[in-house]
């Protein structure tokens, strides 16, 4: 078991979401936050930070940054919802940009569409003012076992 998986499991048991982000350097650099609601669903947040801008004239969040935020959300969501000795490995990631990311908080939720023995499929949706008006939707495949 890698140290990270063990640490992740301990922090999840403690409900310490902030410490999980703290353990993932790039998630910390982006400024990601997340929490678990009463129903046990994870809500991811990316408060606006000028560092994350990709169009200074509009201004708008960088498309790559939005991708990184969603991919990171999918990985945490998957690790939070399964017991494993191995970290899932991303196989591919597909992202559709629907609206510009305005300079304000970006939210995301994930759904595990399918979890097989070897591969998991995760859907991710991001929005700002209104969940019915998504900024981006994405899906990712993760390899669950390296055996």
């Amino acid at each position: 078991m890698s140290d990270f998986i063990g640490r992740f499991a301990r922090l999840r048991e403690a409900g310490d979401c902030a410490a999980i982000i703290e353990a993932i350097p790039y998630a910390r650099l982006m400024g990601v936050e997340f929490c678990e609601d009463e129903d046990g669903h994870l809500l991811f947040r990316l408060p606006f930070n000028p560092r994350n801008v990709g169009n200074t004239r509009l201004p708008a969040l960088h498309g790559g940054l939005i991708g990184g935020f969603l991919e990171n959300a999918a990985l945490i969501h998957l690790m939070w919802n399964r017991e494993s000795q191995e970290a899932p490995k991303i196989v591919d990631f597909s992202l559709d940009y629907l609206r510009p990311g305005k300079p304000q908080t970006l939210f995301a939720r994930c759904e595990i569409t399918k979890q097989g023995k070897r591969v998991a499929h995760v859907l991710i949706e991001a929005w700002q003012d209104d969940p019915a008006r998504p900024v981006a939707v994405a899906r990712a495949h993760f390899l669950l076992s390296t055996d």
Partner: peptide, 20 residues
């Protein structure tokens, strides 16, 4: 170090590849 996605092995976060 700041670009790492998996602190267990030091591999860069997939989001860096996406932005690149």
């Amino acid at each position: 170090e700041a670009l790492v996605g998996n602190p267990g092995n030091g591999v860069v976060h997939g989001g860096i590849i996406t932005s690149l």
